[in-house]
Amino acid sequence: KYSDMIVAAIQAEKNRAGSSRQSIQKYIKSHYKVGENADSQIKLSIKRLVTTGVLKQTKGVGASGSFRLA
């Protein structure tokens, strides 16, 4: 599940300011076997996790910027 992968990526990075979408994508692609549409799936999952309150956006708008666990 992409949401689990995103949470794992943010936990692994341990950046106080949060993790960027690009760094999350890079982590997921190197640690998991994902399909061609992974980028758009990650983007959608990040937006969903922010609206449900699992992630907090520290910089930027939408799916860009930095995110950390709430």
Rank of each mutant, 00 (worst) to 15 (best):
Lys1Ala: 10
Lys1Trp: 10
Gly65Asn: 12
Tyr32Glu: 00
Ala63Ile: 09
Leu55Trp: 01
Met5Pro: 01
Lys29Glu: 07
Ser30Trp: 04
Lys43Phe: 14
Arg48His: 13
Arg68Thr: 13
Lys59Ser: 10
Ser3Asn: 10
Asp4Lys: 10
Gly60Gln: 07
Val7Tyr: 04
Thr52Asp: 10
Ile24Leu: 02
Arg68Pro: 02
Ser64His: 13
Gln25Ser: 13
Leu55Ile: 09
Ile46Phe: 03
Glu13Trp: 05
Lys14His: 12
Gln41Asn: 07
Ser64Tyr: 10
Thr52Leu: 14
Ile28Thr: 00
Ser64Asp: 13
Ala17Lys: 10
Ser20Asn: 06
Ser64Ala: 10
Gln25Tyr: 11
Lys1Leu: 14
Ala63Cys: 14
Tyr32Ser: 02
Gly18Pro: 03
Ala38Ile: 13
Ser66Cys: 15
Lys56Gly: 03
Ala63Pro: 07
Ser45Trp: 15
Gln11Arg: 14
Asp39Thr: 08
Arg16Ser: 14
Arg21Tyr: 15
Gly35Gln: 05
Ile10Arg: 01
Gly60Asp: 05
Asp39Gly: 05
Ser64Lys: 13
Gly65Asp: 14
Ala17Cys: 15
Ile10Ala: 02
Thr58Glu: 09
Tyr32His: 02
Asp39Ile: 09
Met5Trp: 12
Asn15Arg: 08
Ile28Tyr: 00
Ile46Met: 04
Ser45Cys: 15
Gln25Asn: 08
Lys47Ser: 09
Val50Thr: 04
Gly18Ile: 03
Lys59Cys: 14
Asn37Gly: 08
Glu13Gly: 11
Lys59Tyr: 09
Thr51Gln: 14
Val61Gly: 12
His31Met: 06
Ser64Gln: 12
Asn37Met: 05
Ser23Lys: 05
Asn15Met: 05
Glu36Ser: 12
Glu36Arg: 14
Gly60Tyr: 06
Leu44Tyr: 08
Val34Trp: 03
Ser19Gln: 03
Arg16Ala: 13
Gln25Ala: 14
Arg68His: 09
Ile42Ala: 00
Arg16Ile: 11
Arg48Ala: 10
Leu69Phe: 05
Val34Thr: 05
Gly65Phe: 14
Ala9Trp: 02
Ser20Leu: 04
Ala63Asn: 13
Asn37Phe: 07
Tyr27Pro: 00
Lys56Thr: 13
Lys47Met: 13
Val34Asp: 02
Lys43Cys: 13
Val54Asn: 02
Lys29Asp: 03
Gly35Asp: 10
Lys1Tyr: 11
Leu49Ile: 02
Ile42Leu: 04
Ser66Pro: 07
Leu44Lys: 14
Val61Pro: 12
Tyr2Lys: 01
Lys59Gly: 13
Thr52Arg: 12
Ser30Pro: 00
Ile24Gly: 01
Gln57Pro: 07
Asp39Trp: 09
Ala17Ser: 11
Ser19Ile: 11
Asp4Val: 12
Gln57Glu: 11
Thr58Phe: 08
Asp39Arg: 05
Ala38Pro: 04
Ala12Glu: 04
Ala9Arg: 03
Lys14Val: 06
Gly53Val: 03
Met5Ala: 03
Ile24Ser: 01
